[in-house]
Design a protein around this nucleic acid. Structure first.
Lengths: 211, 211
DNA sequence: AATATTATATGATAATTGTCACCTTTTCAA
DNA sequence: TTGAAAAGGTGACAATTATCATATAATATT
């Protein structure tokens, strides 16, 4: 859904506050509408057979969650949990279907957006299967920096727990922690509690490309 | 694109024969239309930084390739190479755009299809990051059997090279070969040249779930 | 403030996977 | 049909990653 189209619809809807850690929906839920993110960030994850959560995507301001299952009329394959305090609005299915039928351009816009998501998913697949954990973690920090920025002290604005970081890159929490320690020792990043700051972007970049 | 819609469009187009190993398009190409598969199977892959091909999807009869980039109006992020002799038809971009504008249902159909692809991609991400190579190979064989079937002697109809198998599950060719040997030793599969047959589906199934 | 709980951290070790070397078999083209 | 090239196969070893144990720090709860 395009931001413009979205705004038009969502402005008429009430927003809802969601606290960090709360779930918007769970894997297997039947969604009767989509959530659009007004503020804050949510993780979209899928439980794997071995009991670990794989974070497939982070959704922030302007993004929509749940549209895949609403459109395909399937139960959702992902869970959405707030990783920061959020403000979301809910757009009921009817309203979407209605707009879809009345406005062909709207469908094309959603289509474009989904095509983009699909490309991103392809990239994630390649990263997951071809890069080492170290490379994926380096990439994750660069991604967090460029997408959510850093604060005045140079720490990433979006603070994820070590466990969440591990679940983004698909590794064990201990492995993620170990690599974070290593990056710190090498001066590539700095930490303060769970906050992380990028110190040497170039080094991280080179690492992702296979030094 | 739905099979019904597709047929309508594609029946009016000339089909083209593509020999095994030939490329339909390469990563980075600008596509001015989509290819639909009439017969045979194509691999859709993406080159990773370390020079390995990651196969992201196999496309067979009724499936459409390249629609993502045509719709998003981006250069394609994937290469398409025939893994068996194929017959494809080409639908020019203009024809697609034209139909999109005239027929709203058509957009919704494509939308549904893409939503499905997106879900599948999510599943692949989870598999890639949470399952072992052994589990992924077992899964690949089950997938090949249920999607493309087996011949009279019980061998998988779609014969992939060991390298392609490795590229589907994202591992080194040698690792794939080793695991195939192991499966054979344990009586889970049989081989004959590069052909592979599933002997014990239950064992393979259990393996994918973590024995 | 004291305590329970959760998150972070690190060592030791095992399991998995990749890499390189080398050999054999199959395939294909001259 | 006969070599050359490609694909398949295996051993040895190195590198990566997971697991388990345990310790410490941070956070929440009463």
């Amino acid at each position: 859904m395009s931001k413009a189209e979205l705004k038009k619809v969502s402005d008429t809807k009430v927003t809802k506050k969601v606290k960090k850690g709360e779930a918007l929906f769970e894997e297997g839920d039947k969604l009767d509408g989509v959530f659009c993110v007004r503020d804050g960030i949510s993780k979209l994850s899928k439980l794997s057979a071995n009991g670990k959560d794989q974070i497939v995507k982070l959704a922030s301001k302007g993004e929509v969650m749940g549209q895949r299952s609403v459109i395909a009329e399937e139960y959702t394959n992902l869970s959405a949990v707030a990783v920061s305090d959020m403000e979301v609005c809910f757009i009921p299915k009817d309203s979407i279907v209605h707009t879809l039928n009345r406005n062909p351009d709207y469908a094309v816009e959603i289509l474009r957006h989904m095509a983009h998501d699909l490309k991103e998913a392809d990239d994630v697949i390649v990263n997951m299967s071809q890069k080492t954990v170290k490379q994926r973690i380096a990439e994750a920090f660069l991604y967090l920096k460029s997408n959510y920025g850093e604060d005045e002290q140079g720490f990433l604005v979006l603070t994820l727990s070590r466990e969440d970081i591990a679940n983004v890159v698909g590794t064990a929490t201990e492995s993620a922690i170990r690599i974070i320690s290593e990056f710190k020792k090498k001066g590539m990043i700095k930490t303060s509690g769970k906050k992380i700051g990028v110190l040497n972007e170039k080094l991280l970049q080179e690492l992702t490309e296979g030094f």
